[in-house]
Design a binder for these strands. Sequence first.
DNA 1: GTCTATATTCAGATAGAC
DNA 2: GTCTATCTGAATATAGAC
Lengths: 205, 205
Amino acid sequence: MAKSKKDNNTEQQILNAARQVFLEKGLSGARMQDIADKAEINKAMLHYYFKNKELLFETIFQETAGKLFPHFDKLMDSDLNFFDKIRSIVSSYIEMVSQNPYLPLFVISELNKNPEIGLKHFFEKQRPGFVKKFKESIEESINSGLILPINPIHLIINMFSMCAFPFMAKPMLKIITGIEEEQFNILMEQRKVLVAEFIINSIKK
Amino acid sequence: MAKSKKDNNTEQQILNAARQVFLEKGLSGARMQDIADKAEINKAMLHYYFKNKELLFETIFQETAGKLFPHFDKLMDSDLNFFDKIRSIVSSYIEMVSQNPYLPLFVISELNKNPEIGLKHFFEKQRPGFVKKFKESIEESINSGLILPINPIHLIINMFSMCAFPFMAKPMLKIITGIEEEQFNILMEQRKVLVAEFIINSIKK
DNA sequence: GTCTATATTCAGATAGAC
DNA sequence: GTCTATCTGAATATAGAC
Protein backbone atom coordinates (compact mmCIF):
# COMPACT_ATOMS: atom_id res chain seq x y z
CA MET A 1 0.00 0.00 0.00
CA ALA A 2 2.63 2.45 1.07
CA LYS A 3 4.66 1.13 -1.80
CA SER A 4 2.03 1.23 -4.50
CA LYS A 5 0.95 4.62 -3.26
CA LYS A 6 4.46 5.86 -3.74
CA ASP A 7 4.72 4.22 -7.15
CA ASN A 8 1.57 5.78 -8.29
CA ASN A 9 2.64 9.15 -7.01
CA THR A 10 5.99 9.10 -8.79
CA GLU A 11 4.31 7.99 -11.97
CA GLN A 12 1.88 10.87 -11.69
CA GLN A 13 4.69 13.33 -11.09
CA ILE A 14 6.38 12.06 -14.22
CA LEU A 15 3.23 12.27 -16.28
CA ASN A 16 2.51 15.78 -15.08
CA ALA A 17 6.02 16.88 -15.86
CA ALA A 18 6.06 15.13 -19.22
CA ARG A 19 2.74 16.70 -20.15
CA GLN A 20 4.07 20.17 -19.50
CA VAL A 21 7.32 19.68 -21.35
CA PHE A 22 5.94 17.80 -24.35
CA LEU A 23 3.06 20.21 -24.85
CA GLU A 24 5.40 23.17 -24.82
CA LYS A 25 8.29 21.75 -26.80
CA GLY A 26 6.90 18.87 -28.81
CA LEU A 27 8.44 15.42 -29.10
CA SER A 28 11.71 16.43 -30.73
CA GLY A 29 12.15 19.56 -28.65
CA ALA A 30 11.52 17.94 -25.28
CA ARG A 31 14.45 16.82 -23.11
CA MET A 32 14.25 13.90 -20.76
CA GLN A 33 16.41 15.89 -18.37
CA ASP A 34 13.85 18.69 -18.28
CA ILE A 35 11.09 16.23 -17.56
CA ALA A 36 13.13 14.64 -14.79
CA ASP A 37 13.88 18.04 -13.28
CA LYS A 38 10.24 19.10 -13.31
CA ALA A 39 9.21 15.79 -11.77
CA GLU A 40 11.97 16.21 -9.17
CA ILE A 41 13.50 12.85 -9.87
CA ASN A 42 16.51 11.76 -11.91
CA LYS A 43 16.71 10.51 -15.46
CA ALA A 44 17.19 6.89 -14.46
CA MET A 45 13.80 6.94 -12.81
CA LEU A 46 12.15 8.06 -16.00
CA HIS A 47 13.43 4.99 -17.77
CA TYR A 48 12.38 2.82 -14.89
CA TYR A 49 8.77 3.94 -15.23
CA PHE A 50 8.73 4.43 -18.99
CA LYS A 51 11.08 2.36 -21.08
CA ASN A 52 11.96 5.21 -23.42
CA LYS A 53 11.07 8.69 -24.60
CA GLU A 54 8.77 7.54 -27.38
CA LEU A 55 6.68 5.46 -25.02
CA LEU A 56 6.33 8.31 -22.58
CA PHE A 57 5.39 10.60 -25.42
CA GLU A 58 2.74 8.25 -26.73
CA THR A 59 1.17 8.03 -23.31
CA ILE A 60 0.91 11.81 -23.16
CA PHE A 61 -0.23 12.13 -26.74
CA GLN A 62 -3.00 9.63 -26.34
CA GLU A 63 -4.30 11.24 -23.17
CA THR A 64 -4.06 14.68 -24.77
CA ALA A 65 -5.69 13.79 -28.03
CA GLY A 66 -8.53 12.28 -26.04
CA LYS A 67 -9.33 15.68 -24.60
CA LEU A 68 -9.75 17.32 -28.00
CA PHE A 69 -13.45 16.67 -28.49
CA PRO A 70 -14.89 16.23 -25.06
CA HIS A 71 -18.41 14.87 -24.62
CA PHE A 72 -19.65 16.48 -27.82
CA ASP A 73 -21.73 13.52 -28.89
CA LYS A 74 -23.51 13.68 -25.57
CA LEU A 75 -24.21 17.32 -26.32
CA MET A 76 -25.44 16.53 -29.80
CA ASP A 77 -27.91 14.05 -28.34
CA SER A 78 -29.40 16.65 -26.03
CA ASP A 79 -32.70 18.29 -26.84
CA LEU A 80 -31.24 21.74 -27.32
CA ASN A 81 -32.26 23.44 -30.56
CA PHE A 82 -29.66 23.66 -33.29
CA PHE A 83 -28.51 27.19 -32.53
CA ASP A 84 -28.14 26.45 -28.85
CA LYS A 85 -26.08 23.40 -29.68
CA ILE A 86 -23.70 25.63 -31.58
CA ARG A 87 -23.63 28.12 -28.71
CA SER A 88 -22.95 25.37 -26.26
CA ILE A 89 -20.19 23.72 -28.27
CA VAL A 90 -18.41 26.98 -29.04
CA SER A 91 -18.53 28.17 -25.47
CA SER A 92 -17.37 24.93 -23.90
CA TYR A 93 -14.71 24.42 -26.53
CA ILE A 94 -13.18 27.84 -26.05
CA GLU A 95 -13.32 27.30 -22.31
CA MET A 96 -11.51 23.98 -22.69
CA VAL A 97 -8.82 25.52 -24.87
CA SER A 98 -8.46 28.43 -22.47
CA GLN A 99 -7.67 25.91 -19.77
CA ASN A 100 -5.34 23.96 -22.10
CA PRO A 101 -3.93 26.55 -24.47
CA TYR A 102 -1.15 24.36 -25.85
CA LEU A 103 -3.41 21.43 -26.56
CA PRO A 104 -4.58 22.06 -30.14
CA LEU A 105 -1.21 23.18 -31.44
CA PHE A 106 0.48 20.23 -29.81
CA VAL A 107 -1.82 17.62 -31.29
CA ILE A 108 -1.92 19.23 -34.71
CA SER A 109 1.78 19.82 -34.80
CA GLU A 110 2.77 16.30 -33.84
CA LEU A 111 0.13 14.88 -36.13
CA ASN A 112 1.70 16.75 -39.03
CA LYS A 113 5.17 15.53 -38.28
CA ASN A 114 3.99 11.98 -37.85
CA PRO A 115 0.57 11.36 -39.45
CA GLU A 116 0.43 7.69 -38.43
CA ILE A 117 0.18 8.37 -34.71
CA GLY A 118 -3.29 9.75 -35.21
CA LEU A 119 -4.60 6.55 -36.67
CA LYS A 120 -2.71 4.46 -34.19
CA HIS A 121 -4.50 6.10 -31.33
CA PHE A 122 -8.00 7.21 -30.63
CA PHE A 123 -9.11 9.09 -33.70
CA GLU A 124 -10.38 6.13 -35.64
CA LYS A 125 -12.70 5.08 -32.86
CA GLN A 126 -13.86 8.57 -32.15
CA ARG A 127 -14.57 9.52 -35.73
CA PRO A 128 -18.12 8.26 -36.04
CA GLY A 129 -19.02 10.06 -32.83
CA PHE A 130 -20.07 13.63 -32.78
CA VAL A 131 -19.06 14.63 -36.31
CA LYS A 132 -21.61 12.26 -37.77
CA LYS A 133 -24.30 13.52 -35.42
CA PHE A 134 -23.36 17.10 -36.10
CA LYS A 135 -23.61 16.57 -39.83
CA GLU A 136 -27.05 15.04 -39.45
CA SER A 137 -28.16 17.89 -37.25
CA ILE A 138 -26.98 20.42 -39.80
CA GLU A 139 -28.66 18.63 -42.69
CA GLU A 140 -31.87 18.43 -40.74
CA SER A 141 -31.73 22.16 -40.02
CA ILE A 142 -31.22 22.87 -43.70
CA ASN A 143 -34.09 20.63 -44.76
CA SER A 144 -36.45 22.13 -42.24
CA GLY A 145 -35.66 25.59 -43.56
CA LEU A 146 -34.05 26.83 -40.36
CA ILE A 147 -30.72 27.66 -41.95
CA LEU A 148 -29.30 28.36 -45.39
CA PRO A 149 -27.76 25.49 -47.36
CA ILE A 150 -24.13 24.83 -46.52
CA ASN A 151 -21.85 21.82 -46.72
CA PRO A 152 -21.81 20.57 -43.12
CA ILE A 153 -18.08 19.92 -43.32
CA HIS A 154 -17.42 23.58 -44.05
CA LEU A 155 -19.56 24.66 -41.15
CA ILE A 156 -17.75 22.32 -38.79
CA ILE A 157 -14.38 23.50 -40.07
CA ASN A 158 -15.39 27.13 -39.67
CA MET A 159 -16.47 26.58 -36.12
CA PHE A 160 -13.36 24.81 -34.94
CA SER A 161 -11.17 27.21 -36.87
CA MET A 162 -12.52 30.22 -35.04
CA CYS A 163 -12.40 28.44 -31.68
CA ALA A 164 -8.93 26.92 -31.80
CA PHE A 165 -6.85 29.05 -34.14
CA PRO A 166 -6.63 32.19 -32.00
CA PHE A 167 -4.98 30.26 -29.18
CA MET A 168 -2.56 28.57 -31.51
CA ALA A 169 -1.64 31.85 -33.16
CA LYS A 170 -1.53 33.83 -29.93
CA PRO A 171 2.12 34.99 -30.16
CA MET A 172 1.61 36.07 -33.76
CA LEU A 173 -1.67 37.81 -33.04
CA LYS A 174 -0.14 39.71 -30.16
CA ILE A 175 2.55 41.01 -32.45
CA ILE A 176 0.50 41.95 -35.50
CA THR A 177 -2.36 43.47 -33.52
CA GLY A 178 -0.24 44.95 -30.78
CA ILE A 179 -2.38 43.63 -27.96
CA GLU A 180 -1.08 42.46 -24.59
CA GLU A 181 -1.76 39.38 -22.50
CA GLU A 182 -4.64 40.84 -20.52
CA GLN A 183 -6.40 42.20 -23.56
CA PHE A 184 -5.93 38.87 -25.30
CA ASN A 185 -7.69 37.04 -22.49
CA ILE A 186 -10.58 39.47 -22.61
CA LEU A 187 -10.97 38.91 -26.32
CA MET A 188 -10.97 35.14 -25.89
CA GLU A 189 -13.60 35.41 -23.19
CA GLN A 190 -15.74 37.47 -25.57
CA ARG A 191 -15.37 34.86 -28.26
CA LYS A 192 -17.29 32.30 -26.22
CA VAL A 193 -20.39 34.21 -27.24
CA LEU A 194 -19.20 36.11 -30.27
CA VAL A 195 -18.11 33.17 -32.41
CA ALA A 196 -21.40 31.35 -32.01
CA GLU A 197 -23.41 34.45 -32.90
CA PHE A 198 -21.10 35.10 -35.83
CA ILE A 199 -21.85 31.64 -37.16
CA ILE A 200 -25.57 31.77 -36.49
CA ASN A 201 -25.81 35.19 -38.07
CA SER A 202 -24.25 33.82 -41.20
CA ILE A 203 -26.38 30.71 -41.66
CA LYS A 204 -29.78 31.65 -40.27
CA LYS A 205 -32.54 32.26 -42.77
CA MET B 1 31.29 34.35 -63.05
CA ALA B 2 31.45 30.60 -63.32
CA LYS B 3 32.55 30.61 -59.75
CA SER B 4 29.99 32.97 -58.35
CA LYS B 5 27.36 31.23 -60.42
CA LYS B 6 28.29 27.99 -58.80
CA ASP B 7 28.36 29.54 -55.35
CA ASN B 8 25.01 31.02 -55.80
CA ASN B 9 23.64 27.80 -57.11
CA THR B 10 24.88 25.73 -54.19
CA GLU B 11 23.55 28.29 -51.78
CA GLN B 12 20.18 28.11 -53.47
CA GLN B 13 20.18 24.32 -53.33
CA ILE B 14 20.87 24.53 -49.62
CA LEU B 15 18.16 27.08 -49.03
CA ASN B 16 15.64 25.06 -51.00
CA ALA B 17 16.52 21.92 -49.09
CA ALA B 18 16.54 23.69 -45.75
CA ARG B 19 13.17 25.23 -46.47
CA GLN B 20 11.63 21.85 -47.14
CA VAL B 21 13.12 20.16 -44.10
CA PHE B 22 12.56 22.98 -41.61
CA LEU B 23 8.99 23.56 -42.70
CA GLU B 24 8.16 19.91 -42.32
CA LYS B 25 10.07 19.12 -39.17
CA GLY B 26 10.64 22.40 -37.39
CA LEU B 27 13.90 23.61 -35.92
CA SER B 28 14.40 20.88 -33.36
CA GLY B 29 13.13 18.10 -35.60
CA ALA B 30 15.26 19.00 -38.61
CA ARG B 31 18.55 17.21 -39.23
CA MET B 32 21.49 18.85 -40.94
CA GLN B 33 22.15 15.51 -42.59
CA ASP B 34 18.68 15.50 -44.14
CA ILE B 35 19.20 19.00 -45.47
CA ALA B 36 22.57 18.03 -46.91
CA ASP B 37 21.07 14.96 -48.56
CA LYS B 38 18.23 16.92 -50.13
CA ALA B 39 20.68 19.55 -51.36
CA GLU B 40 22.90 16.75 -52.70
CA ILE B 41 25.96 17.98 -50.88
CA ASN B 42 27.66 16.92 -47.66
CA LYS B 43 27.36 18.29 -44.16
CA ALA B 44 30.68 20.12 -44.29
CA MET B 45 29.36 22.23 -47.13
CA LEU B 46 26.39 23.30 -45.08
CA HIS B 47 28.68 24.73 -42.45
CA TYR B 48 30.77 26.37 -45.11
CA TYR B 49 27.78 28.33 -46.40
CA PHE B 50 25.98 28.76 -43.10
CA LYS B 51 27.99 28.86 -39.93
CA ASN B 52 25.52 26.76 -37.96
CA LYS B 53 22.04 25.32 -37.82
CA GLU B 54 20.50 28.27 -36.02
CA LEU B 55 21.73 30.72 -38.61
CA LEU B 56 20.39 28.63 -41.45
CA PHE B 57 17.10 28.34 -39.63
CA GLU B 58 16.82 32.04 -39.07
CA THR B 59 17.40 32.70 -42.74
CA ILE B 60 14.55 30.37 -43.62
CA PHE B 61 12.30 31.65 -40.88
CA GLN B 62 12.71 35.24 -41.89
CA GLU B 63 12.01 34.52 -45.53
CA THR B 64 9.03 32.37 -44.58
CA ALA B 65 7.50 34.77 -42.10
CA GLY B 66 7.77 37.46 -44.74
CA LYS B 67 5.38 35.54 -46.95
CA LEU B 68 2.65 35.38 -44.34
CA PHE B 69 0.86 38.58 -45.20
CA PRO B 70 1.71 39.30 -48.79
CA HIS B 71 0.87 42.67 -50.30
CA PHE B 72 -2.22 43.10 -48.18
CA ASP B 73 -1.68 46.76 -47.50
CA LYS B 74 -1.51 47.36 -51.21
CA LEU B 75 -4.83 45.60 -51.46
CA MET B 76 -6.31 47.66 -48.63
CA ASP B 77 -5.33 50.82 -50.48
CA SER B 78 -7.16 49.77 -53.62
CA ASP B 79 -10.54 51.25 -54.46
CA LEU B 80 -12.40 47.98 -54.08
CA ASN B 81 -15.47 48.19 -51.87
CA PHE B 82 -15.22 46.63 -48.41
CA PHE B 83 -16.84 43.33 -49.29
CA ASP B 84 -14.68 42.89 -52.34
CA LYS B 85 -11.62 43.54 -50.24
CA ILE B 86 -12.63 40.68 -48.00
CA ARG B 87 -13.30 38.46 -51.00
CA SER B 88 -9.95 39.35 -52.44
CA ILE B 89 -7.97 38.79 -49.27
CA VAL B 90 -9.64 35.49 -48.48
CA SER B 91 -9.19 34.15 -51.98
CA SER B 92 -5.57 35.15 -52.36
CA TYR B 93 -4.73 34.02 -48.85
CA ILE B 94 -6.16 30.56 -49.30
CA GLU B 95 -4.39 30.33 -52.64
CA MET B 96 -1.10 31.28 -51.01
CA VAL B 97 -1.55 28.70 -48.27
CA SER B 98 -2.54 26.08 -50.82
CA GLN B 99 0.79 26.68 -52.49
CA ASN B 100 2.61 26.69 -49.13
CA PRO B 101 0.59 24.39 -46.91
CA TYR B 102 3.22 24.06 -44.19
CA LEU B 103 3.81 27.77 -43.89
CA PRO B 104 1.31 28.86 -41.22
CA LEU B 105 1.89 25.90 -38.94
CA PHE B 106 5.63 26.33 -39.24
CA VAL B 107 5.66 30.00 -38.32
CA ILE B 108 3.11 29.64 -35.55
CA SER B 109 4.74 26.56 -34.13
CA GLU B 110 8.24 28.02 -34.01
CA LEU B 111 6.89 31.29 -32.69
CA ASN B 112 5.30 29.44 -29.79
CA LYS B 113 8.46 27.59 -28.90
CA ASN B 114 10.54 30.74 -29.15
CA PRO B 115 8.43 33.92 -28.90
CA GLU B 116 11.41 36.26 -29.25
CA ILE B 117 12.20 35.31 -32.82
CA GLY B 118 9.02 37.02 -33.96
CA LEU B 119 10.06 40.36 -32.58
CA LYS B 120 13.62 39.92 -33.73
CA HIS B 121 12.52 39.61 -37.32
CA PHE B 122 9.99 41.29 -39.48
CA PHE B 123 6.82 41.42 -37.45
CA GLU B 124 7.51 44.66 -35.64
CA LYS B 125 8.02 46.56 -38.86
CA GLN B 126 5.11 44.94 -40.60
CA ARG B 127 2.65 45.46 -37.80
CA PRO B 128 1.44 48.93 -38.66
CA GLY B 129 0.85 47.84 -42.23
CA PHE B 130 -2.31 46.20 -43.34
CA VAL B 131 -3.83 45.44 -39.94
CA LYS B 132 -4.12 49.13 -39.19
CA LYS B 133 -5.65 49.82 -42.57
CA PHE B 134 -7.98 46.89 -42.26
CA LYS B 135 -9.19 48.09 -38.88
CA GLU B 136 -9.87 51.54 -40.28
CA SER B 137 -11.72 50.08 -43.21
CA ILE B 138 -13.88 48.00 -40.90
CA GLU B 139 -14.65 50.94 -38.63
CA GLU B 140 -15.56 53.06 -41.60
CA SER B 141 -17.91 50.35 -42.87
CA ILE B 142 -19.56 50.17 -39.47
CA ASN B 143 -19.96 53.94 -39.21
CA SER B 144 -21.42 54.21 -42.68
CA GLY B 145 -24.00 51.58 -41.81
CA LEU B 146 -22.74 49.02 -44.31
CA ILE B 147 -22.08 46.32 -41.72
CA LEU B 148 -23.14 45.46 -38.19
CA PRO B 149 -20.94 46.59 -35.30
CA ILE B 150 -18.08 44.22 -34.53
CA ASN B 151 -14.70 44.58 -32.92
CA PRO B 152 -12.34 44.74 -35.92
CA ILE B 153 -9.84 42.48 -34.16
CA HIS B 154 -12.42 39.71 -33.91
CA LEU B 155 -13.29 40.04 -37.56
CA ILE B 156 -9.66 39.83 -38.57
CA ILE B 157 -9.11 36.83 -36.32
CA ASN B 158 -12.17 35.09 -37.72
CA MET B 159 -11.01 35.62 -41.25
CA PHE B 160 -7.49 34.30 -40.80
CA SER B 161 -8.76 31.46 -38.63
CA MET B 162 -11.00 30.13 -41.35
CA CYS B 163 -8.34 30.61 -44.01
CA ALA B 164 -5.32 29.11 -42.31
CA PHE B 165 -6.60 26.61 -39.76
CA PRO B 166 -7.93 23.99 -42.17
CA PHE B 167 -4.49 23.56 -43.71
CA MET B 168 -2.80 23.32 -40.37
CA ALA B 169 -5.31 20.79 -39.12
CA LYS B 170 -5.45 18.82 -42.35
CA PRO B 171 -4.31 15.45 -40.94
CA MET B 172 -6.76 15.74 -38.08
CA LEU B 173 -9.62 16.85 -40.32
CA LYS B 174 -9.02 13.96 -42.66
CA ILE B 175 -9.32 11.54 -39.79
CA ILE B 176 -12.35 12.97 -38.01
CA THR B 177 -14.31 13.70 -41.18
CA GLY B 178 -13.13 10.66 -43.09
CA ILE B 179 -12.27 12.61 -46.24
CA GLU B 180 -9.38 11.83 -48.56
CA GLU B 181 -6.73 13.99 -50.16
CA GLU B 182 -8.63 14.77 -53.34
CA GLN B 183 -11.80 15.69 -51.51
CA PHE B 184 -9.80 17.87 -49.16
CA ASN B 185 -8.36 19.84 -52.05
CA ILE B 186 -11.80 20.36 -53.51
CA LEU B 187 -13.07 21.68 -50.20
CA MET B 188 -10.15 24.11 -49.91
CA GLU B 189 -10.80 25.35 -53.42
CA GLN B 190 -14.42 25.97 -52.48
CA ARG B 191 -13.36 27.92 -49.43
CA LYS B 192 -11.79 30.63 -51.54
CA VAL B 193 -15.33 31.82 -52.19
CA LEU B 194 -17.23 30.24 -49.33
CA VAL B 195 -15.27 31.78 -46.44
CA ALA B 196 -15.66 35.31 -47.75
CA GLU B 197 -19.39 34.88 -48.29
CA PHE B 198 -19.71 33.30 -44.87
CA ILE B 199 -18.13 36.37 -43.32
CA ILE B 200 -20.06 38.88 -45.39
CA ASN B 201 -23.30 37.08 -44.68
CA SER B 202 -22.65 37.41 -41.01
CA ILE B 203 -21.77 41.10 -40.86
CA LYS B 204 -23.81 42.73 -43.61
CA LYS B 205 -26.77 44.77 -42.51
C1' DG C 1 12.27 2.09 -6.00
C1' DT C 2 15.98 5.13 -6.07
C1' DC C 3 20.38 6.68 -6.94
C1' DT C 4 25.38 7.55 -9.19
C1' DA C 5 28.15 6.54 -12.64
C1' DT C 6 28.76 5.10 -17.20
C1' DA C 7 27.82 3.51 -21.70
C1' DT C 8 25.89 4.45 -26.26
C1' DT C 9 24.15 6.88 -29.89
C1' DC C 10 23.48 10.61 -32.60
C1' DA C 11 23.92 15.10 -34.43
C1' DG C 12 26.36 19.42 -34.92
C1' DA C 13 30.63 21.20 -35.96
C1' DT C 14 35.66 21.33 -37.39
C1' DA C 15 40.38 19.95 -39.43
C1' DG C 16 42.84 19.48 -43.12
C1' DA C 17 43.77 17.44 -47.81
C1' DC C 18 42.71 18.39 -52.49
C1' DG D 1 34.67 25.30 -53.03
C1' DT D 2 34.48 20.56 -52.06
C1' DC D 3 35.40 16.43 -49.83
C1' DT D 4 36.63 12.58 -46.02
C1' DA D 5 37.59 11.83 -41.64
C1' DT D 6 37.21 13.17 -37.05
C1' DC D 7 36.02 15.61 -32.86
C1' DT D 8 32.94 17.26 -29.42
C1' DG D 9 29.03 17.67 -26.95
C1' DA D 10 24.56 16.55 -25.90
C1' DA D 11 20.89 13.48 -25.07
C1' DT D 12 19.06 8.85 -24.53
C1' DA D 13 19.61 4.79 -22.25
C1' DT D 14 21.67 1.20 -19.09
C1' DA D 15 24.53 -1.08 -15.20
C1' DG D 16 24.84 -1.94 -10.87
C1' DA D 17 25.09 -0.50 -5.89
C1' DC D 18 22.01 0.52 -2.13
